[in-house]
Design a protein around this nucleic acid. Sequence first.
DNA 1: CACACTTACGATATTCGTAAGGATT
DNA 2: AATCCTTACGAATATCGTAAGTGTG
Lengths: 294, 294
Amino acid sequence: MTPRQLEAFVAVARVLSFARASESLYMSQPALSLAIRNLEEELGGPLFSRTTRHVRLTPEGSALLPLAVQLLADFSNVKERLSQRFKLQKGHLTIAAMPSFCASVFPPILAVYRKNYPGIDVSIHDVLNENVIGMVQEGRVELGICFEPIGERGLFFEPLFEDRFVAIVSRDSRLASKNAISWNQLLHQEFITLQRPSSLRRLLEKLVSEAGIEFQVAFDCHQLATVVRMVAAGLGVSAVPSMLRDQLELSGVHSLKLNAPMVSSSVGIITRRDHQLSIAASAMQSEILALTKA
Amino acid sequence: MTPRQLEAFVAVARVLSFARASESLYMSQPALSLAIRNLEEELGGPLFSRTTRHVRLTPEGSALLPLAVQLLADFSNVKERLSQRFKLQKGHLTIAAMPSFCASVFPPILAVYRKNYPGIDVSIHDVLNENVIGMVQEGRVELGICFEPIGERGLFFEPLFEDRFVAIVSRDSRLASKNAISWNQLLHQEFITLQRPSSLRRLLEKLVSEAGIEFQVAFDCHQLATVVRMVAAGLGVSAVPSMLRDQLELSGVHSLKLNAPMVSSSVGIITRRDHQLSIAASAMQSEILALTKA
DNA sequence: CACACTTACGATATTCGTAAGGATT
DNA sequence: AATCCTTACGAATATCGTAAGTGTG
């Protein structure tokens, strides 16, 4: 019992004529006769009563008709759904990214992606850097955007760009006129940054200690936005990822390049090494690569 | 996209191995490869990611799997249902029969039918003779059992037996010792029968008037059972269809043959002339014929 | 006699199985 | 080296189309 046979059956049942049905099926009338005959033999009895002059449904044929229509519709739906998925007309994508990325370079990328693939729904998990890695490892998301993980097995890291720390100071500060500043100069100011659980704080401490520079934290809090507001209010200075630079200028602080030692970290896309990406995810990966490398 | 291809897909997805799946599908492994390949090409993308050493479902393949399983189950169900219908293992039959038939010869026939085809549910409409004809004409039932209709177009009448009227008298009656009686003798007694809307009454009046015999009704009521009880109580006599004879003896009345003029009517099965019977119905027809002609 | 479905038969397309090839553990 | 999937090619099968047959109105 093939879909083709069911189509033939439905076509004949609709018009009650083998000849007319054969036209709509794009096949010869004898071929249609055989197809119906085979179906009848497989099911075990006649579906039509033919009197060479009239074609009528048997009671069993009447019983089959609605079932066949439903079956064909289901078949067609599944096929269409899968095809759409492959053609990226439908689908779902899960991605985790660290907040700094979500707040800066990600939105315009998402806009382009959504324009190119309007049928793909995207769930974005803006979570801490460590959680990004965890969610990818657990398979809860297909893609993750975070700093390069160290020593994590089973993950593949595709680098996007180097994220350097930039200094931020109040516009009223005497440093605001400068374009660049050294770590030593920066850390002699009142320093404001995030609290310990954050990866930014940990990264900052690790990089700074490796460079042999001492620093003291005057204020720390949870939200990066708060840090920025405090800097803008003249309470102190901070160092934040460079990818936030565009945002910073709008927030009323001034950003400065930090001179050597260059403290930077690689931002990239992580995926599970042993899992193939959905087409929706690999399209997103390509999109991110294209728009950040440029 | 054929059911065979879906079966192949599901089999591979279940065991994640082309080689093992090919065994359970009773086909060679390369043939399975091709089948999957064709399915993938039709749907527009890969369903499995093959690394010559591991076979894994792609996200799209994972999406297809439950759909394919459901589709195959539906397919199988429809096929099984139709086959059962043809094999008379499942089905439904609607039949209308006049009450006298239902009360006498029909139950043992139904018992045999049910024994032979336990999967067929039977809806019996025990309605007045005229309603039997109407229900068949309207297509509400497939079979009808009634007196031979006169002048009804579009119906086919298959005669079963001649139903003669028999006289019934009280066991205490002086007529109870006789085996036969004439209409004249019977109608000189207090006569009890059904009221006018009933076909029995109409038939009785018509036949008797054609024979030129006058008769007077002392009592009439709606239920034949009541008539019988009244006769048994010695209130009078009656004439009822001969097919009820077996029942009558149990009801405490005595039945006698009625001599000429022989008043009889043909009982048979009516069907719509332009409609084919379901297998369940034609089986019932054969059963009735076999068990009443004998 | 004309129309509509069935049967018969040759051609085509699809599917299947065997054999060889390639890649990974 | 062994295992597993793919590719290649010939064979079997199924399906289709043309032509002839059959029964009905």
